[in-house]
Design a protein around this nucleic acid. Structure first.
Lengths: 98, 98
DNA sequence: TAAATATATGATAATATATTCATATGAACG
DNA sequence: CGTTCATATGAATATATTATCATATATTTA
């Protein structure tokens, strides 16, 4: 069993993680990336949103380690960081589809 | 494959679900209920918070169908609605513990 | 049925969050 | 090396969210 304080910290971190999933722009970005890697312009077009808004949200996703980025010439190409992202989204879907 | 609009709606619902998990008070309530059912007073004591704050958050959890409530005399006893809650939290933990 | 206990609710204030606009930074290429 | 294209960033605004306070509602019991 963990110490009470550690548990509290862990729960706060958990909430912070889920908070990242809890925004429709960010979820749409993640879903877009589930189809394959994309640069910022492509994501901006796919979501039909402001480029700056997308960049701001990508930053949050990157800080949460849900996506990774690599430069390719002038563009930055984003991808999902790992399989957990897909699993977490799949779990959420299951709950909704009841 | 789903229609584009249905997908959008589903993603928005997903975001709304995760938003519910994305608050430390609510996550702490869920974790508390993972140990067993509790009435409002007990939750209030376990989290050492204001009773009204707890009630407000319980309402949000109930609307999201993450918890259920039943009256027992003067108290309302809350429980986790289903196993998905535990699974989703477990998935989140996995991502964090890397 | 009045008092006590348990919970819920509405309004308010404080805080957090997302989007937009303007602009900065960085890379490629003539 | 100046221009163009791609992305990031900071400030400002608008909106959403949370906790608290005061109080209402509901149940039990003296």
């Amino acid at each position: 069993m963990k110490k009470k304080e550690n548990m509290e910290t862990e729960l706060i971190e958990l909430a912070e993680l889920f908070k990242v999933f809890g925004d429709s722009t960010r979820i749409r970005i993640l879903y877009d990336l589930m189809q394959g890697e994309r640069n910022v312009t492509e994501i901006t077009e796919d979501l039909a949103m402001n480029q700056s808004a997308i960049s701001h949200q990508l930053k949050i996703l990157k800080m949460a380690k849900l996506v990774t980025a690599q430069r390719e010439g002038k563009s930055m190409v984003y991808s999902l960081a790992d399989e957990h992202v897909k699993t977490i989204i799949a779990m959420g879907k299951e709950h909704i589809e009841e």
